[in-house]
């Protein structure tokens, strides 16, 4: 075990090997590892963001659904109210129409009744006059007895 020139050669080789290791071998590997680390961190952050936004979106959709349901309820409510109103109005219309028709019918009947009564009165008057003329055998002056006749007609 004597020390000789092998020592010097080994020291030079060692220096060269360490230099190559430091300059060429390790930096790309270390860089790859570091890049991978940031990529993984980014991926995890993105996943976090994704799940968070999913949560937000589902909450938002829930809210929208609720609002829509409420709106539908309102629409249905107002529609049924409107329908009630329309029905009410139609009922009222029909009622008034009925009343009008009934009144018109009644008026017609009354008018016809009056007319028939008038005609009847007139005919009764004439009949009375004719009867009285026959009894008196003379012509009764219609003009002279118009007042009497009208009075008579009114009494019938």
């Amino acid at each position: 075990m004597d020390i000789n020139a092998t020592l010097i050669l080994q020291m030079i080789a060692f220096a060269v090997f360490v230099w190559v290791m430091m300059k060429f071998a390790l930096p790309p590997i270390a860089k790859g590892m570091k890049d991978r680390e940031t990529r993984i961190a980014d991926g995890l952050a993105a996943a976090d963001r994704g799940s968070k936004s999913l949560l937000e979106a589902s909450a938002k959709s829930e809210e929208a659904l609720k609002a829509a349901r409420q709106q539908a309820q309102e629409i249905v409510g107002s529609a049924s109210k409107q329908a009630g109103q329309i029905l009410e109005k139609a009922k009222l219309d029909a009622e008034s129409e009925k009343a009008r028709i009934v009144a018109a019918g009644r008026a017609e009947v009354e008018r016809e009744l009056a007319q028939a009564r008038d005609t009847l009165r007139k005919q009764v008057g004439e009949l009375a006059v004719a009867g009285a003329g026959r009894i008196l055998k003379r012509e009764i002056d219609a003009k002279a007895h118009a007042e009497l006749l009208a009075d008579l007609a009114a009494q019938v």
């Binding site: 190559v20 071998a25 930096p27 790309p28 590997i29 790859g32």
Partner: peptide, 21 residues
């Protein structure tokens, strides 16, 4: 010594070429 050292460097340089993120 040199052969083994070169083998070490060869292995590491090979890995360095394959380095990826």
């Amino acid at each position: 010594s040199l052969l083994l050292g070169s083998l070490v460097l060869f292995v590491f340089l090979k890995a360095a070429r394959a380095a990826t993120s």
